[in-house]
């Protein structure tokens, strides 16, 4: 049974189609990378998954639920920037992941103490415990994104959406963020959608890589048609899952 179902989704802004005829189903726990040229509707697709926008046609369901009208607890998100709250300390940012759903947006008394203790555990796990009392503006880009991911996971979403989360980071930091994300995923088994413009990153992290492109192209009117998913790669084992040796007898194994 597929977990996320995207059924014949169209989205246009005014007369301009952005994406058209998008159909895809995703199983629970899959990591989906979304790649494509600029302006090919990758981020639009992510906003549709997030329910920040409603598609002009078609629908997106998570776990068979009716299509969402607005972003909610079942979808977590990390953007390239502005994903943490600058006026809260690092620790408060993590607590916010749990307490924003309350009527006053905060915990009181014993519950608050427990939440702070849990936040410290989370911070230790994501390696930010030494900056718990600082404000996000004092952190490096990589640390801010780690905080943003930690905050999103504190809310325990069913699907995690990442919009070019490592786009603004330097290559070294990016590699350590890949390890960080891989570890977190192994722990939580969460379904992840990640938009990236880095093909290598997409194939490295994803189980599947969806490529957005325009299948129809009108040279006199480049905006006449929208983009859709043109390729759906199986990216496990470095993109060549069918070459995995299934037998363990009578075959040579690579050393």
């Amino acid at each position: 049974m597929s977990f996320v179902t995207v059924d014949n989704v169209f989205q246009s802004y005014g007369n301009r189609p952005i994406i058209e005829r998008v159909n895809v189903t995703v199983d629970e726990g899959e990591f989906i990378s979304i790649v494509g040229a600029s302006g090919c509707g990758k981020s639009t697709f992510l906003r549709l998954l997030l329910a920040q926008e409603t598609p002009t046609r078609g629908e997106i369901r998570i776990d068979g639920q009716p299509p969402a009208q607005e972003p909610g607890l079942d979808r977590g998100v990390v953007f390239q920037r502005y994903s943490v709250f600058p006026h809260m300390t690092v620790r408060e940012n993590i607590v916010a992941g749990a307490c924003f759903r309350r009527p006053w947006g905060r915990f009181f008394g014993a519950e608050r103490k427990a939440a702070l203790a849990r936040a410290d555990e989370t911070l230790a796990r994501i390696g930010l415990d030494h900056v718990a009392d600082q404000y996000p503006a004092t952190l490096s880009g990589g640390m801010q994104q780690r905080l943003a991911i930690g905050q999103a996971l504190t809310a325990k979403p069913r699907v995690l959406l990442l919009d070019e989360p490592f786009g603004a980071l330097d290559p070294g930091t990016r590699l350590s963020m890949h390890d960080f994300l891989t570890e977190l995923r192994a722990e939580t088994g969460m379904t992840v959608f990640m938009v990236t413009h880095d093909l290598e990153e997409g194939f490295k992290l994803g189980d599947r890589v969806l490529v957005f492109d325009k299948p129809r192209w009108d040279p006199t009117d480049p905006n006449a048609y929208g983009a859709t998913i043109t390729y759906d790669f199986d990216a496990r084992n470095g993109g060549i899952p069918f070459q995995t040796i299934q037998e363990d007898t009578h075959v040579l194994h690579p050393a």
Partner: peptide, 21 residues
């Protein structure tokens, strides 16, 4: 930034909590 508001929404914040916090 809209991203920040959307982030708060995904953490389950109501309009009131977004205004307040």
């Amino acid at each position: 930034p809209r991203e920040m508001i959307v982030k708060a929404e995904t953490l389950g914040a109501s309009s009131w909590v977004i205004a307040l916090r």
